[in-house]
Simulated assay, not measured.
Amino acid sequence: MPWVHYGFTTKFVPWLKQNAKGYDVVIVNGIWNFTALAARLSLTSSKVPYFVFTHGMLDPWFRRAYPVKTLLKQISWWCSEGPLLANAQGVLFTCEEERVLARNAFWPYNVKEFVVGYGTSDVKGNAEAQIAEFRERIPALTNKRFFLFLSRIHPKKGCDLLIQAFAKIAPLIPDIDLVMAGPDQSGWAPQLKKQAAALGIADRIHWPGMLEGNRKWGAFHGCEAFVLPSHQENFGIVVAEALACGKPVLITDKVNIWREIQQEGAGLVANDDLPGITSLLEAFIRLSDAERNKIQVSARDAFLKHFDIEQNVTRLLDVLRQTSAPEMAPRPPEN
């Protein structure tokens, strides 16, 4: 329960009741925690406008993956999250797919919906230097081209399917390897490496672990395409980072920003199964140089249009001003 596992404190509710009125608007960042319960107890009966940012926590994938926990969450929904969202000035979503999926999560569902976007800061630094630093981390990669997976090594991410799909096309692309970068928090990597060995592609897959800073950006800049075969992904900040570097993204339709990727022509989208992920790789390697260059341009444009955090902050402020706090509107310039 929230007060056991999610930071219960006796001081927060009194503090919020006393201090919320000193703010133009309040944003509740996330649900299924004591902060959300405290907001329910403090804000729903106040005159202070508030919004709730769910950050993918209403995705029905969790209902299928954790049915027992979902029953407990339904009870919590009736008592806490449901009234919190129903009385909010608005519920904020990072993309259209998140908004659509949230409607099937819990009952009853009665909210005012706003898609305000999400994203990351634009990439900085010298790309060539970053690529060199990344390649120093993986000497066995030498100067070979590569597909990049960069995320947690976790069953939800579809890593096993990506390895199987790569094994199917590896004979067709002897000059392209696969880099599987990310922390192995679930201890799954040894099993995946055995899988790669059994498929005869162990020497074509590289496991640098978690990449940060210049090495991470070097991986993005240096890859042929970024691949994220997730079974569930509310947003996928790594997808936005790849787009910032002008790289095509090959993702499943369970990565919630797939609509924007498809709409802008910034990559390829398929189902989160072996035929789907294999089709992503096969379709990409069949592209002509001109087609790949076009996708790279579209990828960069998609980042600037949808996922540049500075643009999305502006969208968020516009929603706050227009729906609840006109006094937040920018002051006219002084003479």
Rank of each mutant, 00 (worst) to 15 (best):
residue 96 E to G: 03
residue 303 F to T: 04
residue 10 T to F: 03
residue 238 V to Q: 01
residue 181 A to Q: 05
residue 106 F to K: 07
residue 28 V to T: 03
residue 128 E to L: 08
residue 91 V to E: 05
residue 138 I to S: 07
residue 40 R to C: 14
residue 5 H to A: 11
residue 305 K to L: 13
residue 195 Q to A: 00
residue 145 R to K: 15
residue 227 V to Q: 07
residue 245 C to K: 00
residue 177 D to P: 00
residue 159 C to M: 13
residue 133 E to Y: 01
residue 20 A to P: 00
residue 36 A to F: 13
residue 220 F to C: 05
residue 168 K to G: 00
residue 13 V to Q: 10
residue 31 I to Q: 09
residue 283 A to H: 15
residue 179 V to Q: 00
residue 82 G to M: 09
residue 64 R to Q: 15
residue 291 E to I: 03
residue 28 V to L: 04
residue 212 E to N: 06
residue 326 P to G: 01
residue 40 R to H: 12
residue 243 L to Q: 07
residue 127 A to W: 02
residue 319 V to I: 14
residue 112 K to T: 09
residue 29 N to F: 05
residue 115 V to A: 06
residue 153 I to L: 07
residue 270 A to L: 14
residue 315 R to D: 08
residue 278 T to Y: 14
residue 285 I to L: 10
residue 168 K to T: 12
residue 204 R to E: 07
residue 2 P to T: 14
residue 107 W to E: 11
residue 66 Y to N: 12
residue 205 I to M: 09
residue 106 F to A: 05
residue 143 N to Q: 14
residue 328 M to W: 09
residue 221 H to V: 03
residue 159 C to Y: 05
residue 204 R to I: 10
residue 320 L to V: 07
residue 107 W to Q: 08
residue 256 N to S: 15
residue 16 L to S: 08
residue 45 S to W: 10
residue 303 F to S: 03
residue 221 H to A: 13
residue 88 A to C: 05
residue 130 Q to C: 01
residue 243 L to I: 11
residue 309 I to W: 11
residue 78 W to P: 03
residue 22 G to T: 13
residue 131 I to S: 02
residue 140 A to G: 12
residue 135 R to P: 01
residue 270 A to T: 11
residue 123 V to C: 12
residue 238 V to I: 02
residue 83 P to C: 12
residue 308 D to V: 06
residue 6 Y to R: 04
residue 188 W to H: 08
residue 137 R to E: 13
residue 40 R to K: 14
residue 198 A to D: 15
residue 314 T to L: 07
residue 21 K to N: 12
residue 57 M to C: 13
residue 15 W to P: 00
residue 188 W to C: 09
residue 153 I to F: 02
residue 261 I to D: 05
residue 146 F to V: 04
residue 248 P to T: 11
residue 278 T to W: 09
